[in-house]
Design a protein around this nucleic acid. Structure first.
Length: 491
RNA sequence: CGGGGUGUAGCGCAGCCCGGUUAGCGCAUCUGGUUUGGGACCAGAGGGUCGCAGGUUCGAAUCCUGCCACCCCGACCA
């Protein structure tokens, strides 16, 4: 198990790849662009799922499941929507295989052609709204607040583990409302849920804002986003929430009778986050020793490593370790006792650091004598010897401290890498040489946005919700602008 | 889809130019022993359709043709 990472400073992309592989999170599969999420990586995703799912339920949503396949005709009902996804759809054309004429191998049976091809969902608006049509007659049927956990496929040309894969896991919320205002409120509520989750669970500071028309979801009236900054200075869109207006209601003819007896089209939202979150987590916090996981997301929050020379010592230590482990488990802490006797403690230390386990507890003969244990924090790599007594409480406090510390570190990094400029030269210099978020004026046109993208590869990540009105001149065109927007190169 | 690279044991690679013993090394695995407060050591053992398919040749991991897969860099994207 040679597992030394490429240094982050030397080659960030390689460091990321090494980390994903060596921390045993995921690997490439036999299918181009698709990954195998390994148990440890999946455990992180499950923590993300659990945290978000609770927040969805707490805000009145329920889970359901819709088909993987979408009739081709559905996708084309909404013009902008199909336009946005057409280029990356996998299509099912046949439903049967048969043995090859030559007797070897297997081929598609040409007589088993589907009358209407099926699209593997790149997102589920169309299939869901086709159902909602049947579910909604009256304002009394509204709102519908449904989420689904699912896989989707977008046939990407270039993929990277967790950040962009042809198939990925996500959740997609799809809600239906009687009024525009209610739908807009839902859209805002969910982007706030995402931002809170990112902050509280993932220790990831994000900027909430509007997408420009150019970056908007295909078929949306408005797209809200949370944007996070990675350690290499590139932005990552970590979640989006869309106000869909009546676009899908009209496309699928979903009308309802309102209180006054008038027939109206339903208002819609959709919102999602994906396994990309795992990539965000890795790139935001980890270091050259491996993953750094915030305690609230870590599948394993603490690990106990025994240090011993003789079997008698191991027995004594194991007894104590199990007692400690039970105490921690009773306090709701996820902990493992690693008593493998074929590996040296040093190896285990390095391994759990690679895996990002927030706290390591080492117990040796000295500790047994003194009634102590050695605690090591993954985030700061600091070690201290503490009394074995009252460990559950100590750890709970420590987790809170670590969680906050990781968040603050990320926040400071973002602040240190957020620039404000009104000078084009400086703008290009920052984008090219330093990275990070650049707050600059923009004239509001897609044309300018595209030009800037062409020349610098920077895109408008969002127009922050909390941006203040400020008269200025567009960084590129010099035309008047009312507010600054966030530029960055992005994943 | 364009450019570059790689495919040899579970993983990482050497061998290929210049064809010729039984295809080799490190890590991992297994066995035995000694070790264990920051990535242990010794001894032994097992493990291979050399990416696939053709061709050249007395003989191919090595040369030729075709195909496939994956990785990296660009055009598109959560």
């Amino acid at each position: 198990m040679a597992k030394f990472l490429t240094d982050r400073e030397e080659n960030y992309a390689q460091w990321y790849n090494d980390l994903v592989i060596k921390a045993d999170l995921a690997e490439n599969s036999a299918v181009r662009g698709c990954m195998v999420i390994k148990p440890y990586g999946y455990a992180i995703w499950e923590k993300i799922q659990a945290g978000l799912d609770k927040m969805f339920k707490d805000t009145g949503h329920v889970n359901a499941y819709f088909p993987l396949f979408i009739p081709k005709s559905f996708l084309s009902r909404e013009a902008a929507h199909v336009e946005g996804f057409a280029k990356e759809c996998a299509v099912v054309t046949h439903y049967r295989l048969k043995t090859d004429e030559s007797g070897k191998g297997i081929v598609v049976d040409p007589t088993a052609k589907l009358e209407e091809e099926l699209i593997i969902r790149p997102t589920s608006e169309t299939i869901i709204w086709n159902s909602y049509k049947n579910w909604i007659q009256s304002y009394r049927d509204l709102p519908i607040l449904i989420n689904q956990w699912a896989n989707v496929v977008r046939w990407e040309m270039r993929t990277r583990l967790f950040l962009r894969t042809a198939e990925f896991l996500w959740q997609e919320g799809h809600t239906a409302h009687a009024t525009s205002q209610e739908a807009v409120e839902e859209t805002e509520r969910m982007i706030n849920v995402y931002a809170d989750f990112a902050k509280e669970h993932m220790a990831l500071p994000v900027i909430k804002g509007y997408k420009t028309e150019n970056e908007r979801f295909a078929g949306a009236v408005d797209t809200y986003t949370i944007e996070a900054l990675m350690q290499d200075g590139k932005a990552l869109q970590a979640g989006t929430s869309h106000f869909l207006g009546q676009n899908f209601a009209k496309a699928f003819d979903v009308q309802f009778t309102d209180r006054t007896g008038k027939l109206e089209y339903v208002w819609a939202t959709s919102w999602g986050v994906s396994t990309r979150m795992v990539g965000a987590l890795i790139m935001a916090h980890s270091d050259n020793n491996g993953l750094v996981l915030p305690p609230r997301i870590a599948p394993l929050q603490a690990v106990i490593v025994p240090i011993f020379k003789t079997d008698e010592q191991l027995q004594l230590i194991s007894e104590k370790a199990r007692e400690i482990m039970t105490g921690l488990q009773n306090a709701g802490i996820s902990v493992k006792y690693d008593d493998r006797d074929n590996l040296k403690p040093g190896f285990k230390f390095a391994d759990y650091e690679l895996k990002g386990v927030p706290v390591r507890i080492a117990i040796g003969p000295r500790d047994i004598e003194n009634g102590t244990v050695e605690l090591a924090r993954r985030d700061t790599l600091q070690k201290e010897t503490v009394p074995a007594q009252g460990l559950p409480e100590r750890l709970k406090d420590l987790f809170i401290e670590i969680q906050a510390s990781i968040y603050n570190k990320a926040l400071n990094f973002r602040d240190d890498n957020t620039y404000k400029t009104d000078d084009w030269k400086e703008f290009t210099d920052i984008i090219e040489n330093r990275g990070g978020f650049v707050l600059a004026h923009w004239d509001g046109t897609t044309e300018t946005e595209e030009k800037i993208k062409e020349e610098t590869k920077a895109t408008i990540r969002c127009i922050p919700f909390d941006s203040t009105e400020e008269d200025g001149l567009c960084i590129y065109s010099g035309k008047p602008s009312k507010r600054r927007v966030v530029f960055a190169r992005s994943y």
